[in-house]
C-alpha cells in the first residue's frame, strides 16, 4: 500500500493536519465526526490509485481554527480555501457521514470544484420518521454498536472499554486525559455544525438536483446510525447518482472494509461517465 504522510498545512482559519500520499488524479477525503485519519488504511488503499488529500477538519485532533467556523456556510468557505491553497481545481471528493454532508453542500454550491462525488453513509438530510440516531449524548458502548458490525474491531473494543470506565465515575479520573481529549474535541467541533438542526440542513434536499458531477452513494448495509432512507434520498435527488451497498458493514465502513470500499470507489471514479448507466 502507498505511504501516507502527515503534516500541518496553513489555511485561512489556521494550521490544519493534512494527510497526503499516492499519485494519480486528486482525491480529497473528508472524515466523519469521529475525526478518523490516524492509522486509517483506507487512505493507503486509495493512495494506490490517486493523489490522496485527507485534511483533519478544524477543531478535530490538532487542527486549528474551529472558533472561526460556526455553521455549514463557514464550512463550505473553508473547503473552498483549502482547495485553492492545495491548487486542486476539481478533485474527486469522498466524504463519510459528517464529511459526506460537507461534500454535498460544497457540490450543490460550487459543482465546478469537483470531478466526482462519493458520499458514504452521508448525514445532512432530515427524513421524517427516519431520524439519524443521536451522537451527542449516548454512551460509547451504544455508539460502538452503530459504528461497527464486528465488536471485536480494535476501535469498537476501545469504545467499550471507555464505556466501562465511564460507568464508574471513580475510575474516570484514572483514564489518561490524552485518550479522552480527542473525542471531546471531535464532538465539540461536530456540535458547532450539527447540534441544531441536528446533523442536517433543511434546505439541502431540494438543492441536491444542482449537483452535476458523477455521484456515487455508498450505503453500509448494517449502518444503524443513519437509516437507509437517507442514502436512498441522496440517490433519488442527485441526477444520475448511483447507489451501492456494502454488505456486513456498519457506519464506520471505512475502518471495517477499507480495501473493498477503495475498490468500489476506484471502479466508479475511473469509469468514463458516458458508459455509466444513467450518467
Amino acid at each position: 500500500m502507498a505511504d501516507i504522510t502527515l503534516d500541518l498545512f496553513e489555511t485561512e482559519v489556521g494550521k490544519v493536519q493534512l494527510r497526503r500520499g499516492g499519485s494519480g488524479d486528486p482525491l480529497v477525503y473528508l472524515h466523519s465526526a469521529a475525526g478518523e485519519g490516524e492509522g486509517l488504511t483506507f487512505l493507503n488503499e486509495l493512495a494506490e490509485h490517486y493523489s490522496v488529500y485527507a485534511p483533519i477538519f478544524p477543531g478535530f485532533n490538532e487542527s486549528e481554527g474551529i472558533e472561526q467556523i460556526d455553521d455549514m456556510e463557514d464550512v463550505v468557505f473553508y473547503l473552498l480555501d483549502l482547495l485553492d491553497r492545495l491548487a486542486l481545481d476539481a478533485p474527486n471528493v469522498v466524504g463519510l457521514s459528517l464529511g459526506g454532508w460537507m461534500a454535498a453542500e460544497l457540490a450543490t454550491r460550487y459543482p465546478d470544484r469537483l470531478s466526482s462525488l462519493v458520499l458514504i453513509n452521508p448525514a445532512g438530510l432530515y427524513i421524517e420518521g427516519e431520524p439519524i440516531k443521536d451522537i451527542f449524548g449516548r454512551s460509547p458502548a451504544e455508539m460502538a454498536k452503530d459504528l461497527f458490525v464486528d465488536q471485536a474491531h480494535p476501535v469498537a473494543q476501545m469504545m467499550n472499554q471507555m464505556d466501562r470506565a465511564m460507568s464508574d465515575a471513580g475510575s474516570l479520573k484514572d483514564i489518561p486525559f490524552e485518550l479522552i481529549a480527542p473525542q471531546l474535541k471531535s464532538m465539540a467541533a461536530a456540535a458547532r455544525i450539527g447540534w441544531n438542526p441536528y446533523l442536517h440542513n433543511p434546505k439541502l434536499r431540494r438543492r441536491l438536483q444542482r449537483i452535476k458531477v458523477p455521484t456515487l452513494i455508498v450505503r453500509a448495509e448494517s449502518d444503524t446510525l443513519i437509516p437507509a432512507a437517507h442514502t436512498r434520498a441522496y440517490a433519488d435527488e442527485i441526477p444520475g447518482a448511483e447507489l451501492v451497498e456494502v454488505a456486513n458493514a456498519a457506519h464506520m465502513v471505512v475502518m471495517e472494509h477499507p480495501a473493498e470500499l477503495a475498490a468500489i470507489i476506484q471502479k466508479f471514479v475511473t469509469t468514463p461517465s458516458a458508459s455509466r448507466t444513467s450518467g
Binding site: G137, A169, L172, K173, M187, A188, A189, A191
Partner: peptide, 23 residues
C-alpha cells in the same frame, strides 16, 4: 454536552468527579 466546557476545565473537574454525590 459537547463543547460546553473547555478541555482545561474538564481536566480539572475530572479530578473531583469521583466524589460527586451520585457515587
Amino acid at each position: 454536552p459537547p463543547g460546553y466546557t473547555s478541555l482545561r476545565s474538564i481536566q480539572g473537574i475530572l479530578k473531583g468527579i469521583g466524589t460527586f454525590a451520585i457515587n
